[in-house]
Design a protein around this nucleic acid. Sequence first.
DNA 1: GTTGAGCGTT
Length: 539
Amino acid sequence: MDFVQVSEEEGDEPIELPAEEDGTLLLSTLQAQFPGSCGLKYRNIDTQAVRGVRSNEGRLFPPSAESGWGEDIYFCVFPKENKRKSDDNLENSTAKTKRIETRLRCTDLIVLGLAWKTTEDSLREYFETYGEVLMAQIKKDVKSGQSKGFGFVRFGSYEAQMRVLSNRHLIDGRWCEVKVPNSKGMGHQVPCKVFVGRCTEDINSDDLRDYFSKFGEVTDVFIPRPFRAFSFVTFLDPDVAQSLCGEDHIIKGVSVHVSNAAPKAEQNRSHQGQNYSYNAGNNFGMHSYHQGNHMNSGRSGHHRGNNQQHNAHGSDNTAIGNSHSNIGSGGYGMGGNNFGANMGGGGYANSSNHNSGGNMNHRQDGVIPYNNNRQNNFHGMNQPHNGNVGNGGWMNRGHLDMPNLQALGINSQGSNSSNQGQNMNNPLGVGLNLNSLPMNPALVAAALNQWSLLGNQLQNQNQDQQGGNFLSWMAQNSGHSNCNMNNSGRNKGSNNQNSSGMNKGDNSSNDQQNGCPPGNSWSNQSSGSQNSVDKSNFL
DNA sequence: GTTGAGCGTT
């Protein structure tokens, strides 16, 4: 195996990193040793100039195809603090100010979810890969000395602190959460993580990392498995994250949509403390997928291709495969959806759908019009996400932007008999209308993400107990992608340009047709364990 | 000897 000698900076002691069989070095390999690095460069002995190493799709290529990486010592490239700023002087001065100002903001961080066996030494050892650790402590039971499963860590640099805060951490086999402790009275926390919608299955984490690294340092990429058509990208710099929100980006020829995610602290406050009415009849909340962003893109051909691709994967007519259309169609009851896949006369129609046709647009040219059947704004309550760019719009979210959980089959009327008293496995903390489930996991996931209502404790739960949280529920439903077309909902769209306003899709019998358990519900998925889901780790 | 949401006997 070929090894590449890499140091963080020129002159530092190098670490040998294993190259792949094809001679390339995975960016992920590099980043495992040098978190935050986005590339490599080296000193050309002949010219004395610094040369960059070719990087493409998560791979770094050796300078020479014949001699490979050679004996050169490569050093890391880190993204500038904010590449989007045009004025270098301004950038440097603000960056400097920021550094000085934020140096003071280093604070103890709480580490939750530690394995019982984790010691202060192993905790320190783990976090030292991020930077100087000034303190690492495990909280223990005074009598037994047994770990309480959480601890604190303090870094010497704000850089390290930020990096740690924006990553997930696998420590001694458990996914741990690192936060600023409540006791510190969290000030404003700008989210570093963005939601990337409309991903296709061939977009892997390296692709995402590679692509988004050009805007700023990417500290984490998370793609829910099984494939859910969305992912999360975390940036070191929250400004970078915010600046991308609302934008469409093309990765591997696919138009993905970046949208913002409410910060952890914000979501917990707003959803636990304020008792929103989920029955308010608001729109579904997925308008961001359709509103404005695509209208003038002129790329309907691409989307046709997209549908084709997913159909080929056998996930036709799910919101995943057709997220452009179905998610937006969720205005009422999610009935009568799936039109996206069946339009255009391209032969993608799936007979298992119940398209009423009211919203279909049978264009002769087979092009799927973008905003066909859009449900946006039919209550006049949506807030276009584009409006959020650069103005911290996420902070202004309120009722108007809430998902229509009723449309998701979720009500606030409590629960049925199987669910009484325990609020079992319902990560929303609200009652569920079990009769209207199952629903489309991707729809729900995307919607809930918008309000940060879903968590990713799945890792530990899967390890430990197979809990019934949202994502594990999604996982269990993964083979039932077609389950999303139940509910005798109606699809009312005042913005609908192609219909008289009604799209009655009676798909109520589709549960069993599609092999989905009728009345599938959260409680059905229960393993019986207590599972009050912490939703804070997903965003 | 078991557990799995939380917030620190400084």
